[in-house]
Design a binder for these strands. Structure first.
Lengths: 347, 347
DNA sequence: TAAATTAGGTTAATCGTTTAACTAAGTTTA
DNA sequence: TAAACTTAGTTAAACGATTAACCTAATTTA
């Protein structure tokens, strides 16, 4: 059967306390004894029982990871990448992640995730727009909470956030630098802080370039930033504005919809209209032309979240730290300087 | 602090053993006592400690869920849906799922998932094409194994498999029934049992319809069934065969690539060439025309796997049961009877 | 040289459950 | 009526680790 600490103690001819102290690298143990014990551990392929550990320490070694249903099933690997990063770091830190999904629309009487009720996690990571009812429910348990890519105004929680304002600025500036002046913005679910911030970045960039903000160039009334809504929004945008030369879509999914619509209307990208997205999730998706976008380091966000959680759990850091993750412009063929193609356009 | 079984015992004025017996619905306890205890449990919002339970029972209540990296990050929500189903059923059965990914190409010295090494799971579910090295490593631990949508020839494991042969037949027959005779097959990673079976179904359907199998109509040499490979394969297929009227792609991802290629060449779907896929994962993906496909009940597969695991763990069932999941034709606009469009074609 | 400190351990209590073995009272059986 | 069962619980050991408190011998300090 699986070896226990007793087997190791017997084999190394020490007490079980010594074995435990060796495992925890206690300085009271001599190098010699450490070697002896470690040898026994290796030979018997011993791993401490999580249950026994959890029982005595009051810690489970588990972290809860909450995602809404539709975020988890989104076709772009955005949240799944964040999870993957979290998983990597969890291995490093000897933690386990319990992933669960919650409905994005909470019905009354909806229960909290089981791992919270059963106290099976030491902390919880909330990813994306998690319903406020769930968050409020969680507050009652004194578990450390970390948000990723979302925020709810409250005290004493941590967050890993994307630098959306600067990202929105960079994306828009990239178009401005290429000579574009009439630049549309395609958004959805504009009350979402991340998307709202990207919109703010857009407006800031225009302002600092001395271009007047024109609400007619902005379509933000769709409810969810998905492809089909990017498609619909573009139709609306083009109906009112015939002379747009650039579009900044609030994420790549919508940008795909934008491009689909432009293609249907035989509008050339980027010759007639340049398009830039945000997230950098569609690179594998085989779009023509390849989409310029703002890269969001998704794996890193998951990694940072678990790192932070690990620190909070060992009390190394307060439980209300905010981390802002920078983004980076990725130039591809969907945006080209207006100057570079002017000959093309005028022919 | 969190209430323990002692608090319940005190409150209900019984011994802790009685509380435990009530929780496990032991018949030795009178209805009256049961009520008293359950009332106390409700009032204190008591949930048994998983660690304590795990320690004494030797069971963790966790199930490992292994997926390759690239499967998890696939843009279509195929494996994520299976996971979701598993998660649902796990809640039902009071189990937790520990999800981990492994590289699809295993380097030498690659370790097994940590939850196996540390004996933190009672059983393991392997989803999709998991490297054989990992499977072999797992065999050494006597954990029940359940494969989903993949199989490796060995003894004493269970599997939830898609009825790919019949699915392949139905898809092909659907085209045959519409009057198609020159039907292409687009596949990839043909050594994968699931894909190979779909190919077998294709051949069977042709045979039973009296249509001779023509290898020139089948492109199966790509290494991975993704969009770009569907695109490439279609180019090859069309170069050799000008008069094809239908294409069966081994999955929806490849089918998208097929359609992209046809569109580029201004070949109308379904008027010139009808296209059918497999998996039914792209319905949200906003493709024109909507893709006919074989529906694979993904949630159900996850559910079945956890149900089966739960039975195996409670020894209700042997650990080598195979479940074949039926699939169903989903007719959409990418396939239409050749007869219906013949006028169109001859004009 | 006696007291204090240090090094390197060991002993034993503890965490929260489960469950085999026991008990005491009431009910059947022969 | 005594022996044998039932019923409805209780007692106590066990699971595998952690860690405060203790111990002993060697070394340092005053």
């Amino acid at each position: 059967m699986t070896p226990t600490i007793k087997d190791i103690a017997k084999k190394a001819d020490v007490s079980i306390a010594t074995v435990s102290l060796v495992i925890h690298n206690n300085k009271r143990i001599s190098e010699e004894t450490k070697k002896k014990v470690n040898k026994a551990i290796k030979e018997l392929n011993y791993h401490p029982s999580g249950s026994a550990r959890g029982l005595v320490s009051g810690k489970t070694g588990n972290i809860g990871f909450i995602l809404t249903n539709d975020h988890f099933l989104r076709s772009e690997p955005f949240y799944t990448r964040i999870f993957l990063g979290a998983e990597f770091e969890a291995r490093e830190k000897q933690l386990y992640i319990l992933l669960t999904t919650v409905p994005s629309e909470v019905k009354k009487g909806e229960k909290l995730p089981r791992f919270v009720l059963e106290r099976n996690v030491d902390g919880v990571i909330l990813v994306g727009k998690v319903p406020v009812e769930i968050v409020n429910g969680l507050k009652k348990y004194d578990l450390p909470l970390i948000f990723i890519d979302y925020e709810i105004p409250m005290e004493g929680y941590s967050a890993i956030l994307i630098d959306n304002v600067n990202g929105g600025m960079s994306a828009t500036q990239h178009l401005i630098n290429a000579g574009h002046k009439k630049i549309g913005f395609i958004g959805a679910d504009i009350s979402h802080p991340s998307i709202n911030d990207r919109f703010t970045g857009y407006k800031k960039a225009l302002k600092s370039a001395g271009i007047e903000f024109n609400p007619d160039l902005c379509i933000t009334d769709e409810n969810y930033p998905a492809r089909e809504n990017g498609y619909k929004a573009t139709k609306k945008l083009l109906k009112k504005n015939k002379d747009i030369t650039g579009i900044f879509a609030c994420n790549d999914a919508m940008a795909i919809g934008v491009m689909q619509c432009l293609k249907e209307k035989s509008i050339r990208i980027p010759e007639d209209i340049a398009v830039i997205g945000f997230d950098n999730v569609e690179s594998d998706l085989f779009i023509e032309p390849p989409l310029s976008t703002m890269n969001v380091p998704k794996l890193e966000m998951g990694i940072e979240a678990v790192k932070l959680m690990s620190q909070i759990l060992s009390k190394k850091v307060s439980s209300s730290k905010k981390i802002l993750i920078p983004v980076e412009l990725v130039k591809r063929q969907s945006t080209v300087a207006i100057n570079n193609v002017s000959a093309d356009k005028n022919k």
